[in-house]
């Protein structure tokens, strides 16, 4: 299936969960916050959260700013 992560297309196998995606992106240990289709997925639910074709995922972190 095809999902979009921060606007970029990513191919994942059917049945993949959010934690599979994070591992695919080497972000499983990163301090990030995640939205799936504009709803926040709490960190505690990353392992259970299933993904579907055409999902829009946003992964953010803190950077320098004023």
């Amino acid at each position: 299936m095809q999902i979009f992560v921060n606007g970029d297309s990513v191919e994942l196998k059917e049945g993949a969960t959010l934690i599979d995606l994070l591992e695919h992106l080497s972000l499983q240990d990163a301090k990030v916050a995640i939205e799936r289709n504009q709803s926040i997925v709490p960190r505690s639910q990353h392992a259970q959260q299933g993904l579907a074709d055409q999902d829009q995922i946003e992964i953010v972190h803190a950077i320098g700013g004023g």
Partner: peptide, 17 residues
């Protein structure tokens, strides 16, 4: 701090703020 998209692909080992 500002909240921004994680940069996918590049600088994976880079420490975060």
């Amino acid at each position: 701090v500002a909240i921004r998209r994680v940069n996918l692909g590049q600088n994976k080992g880079e420490p975060s703020l």
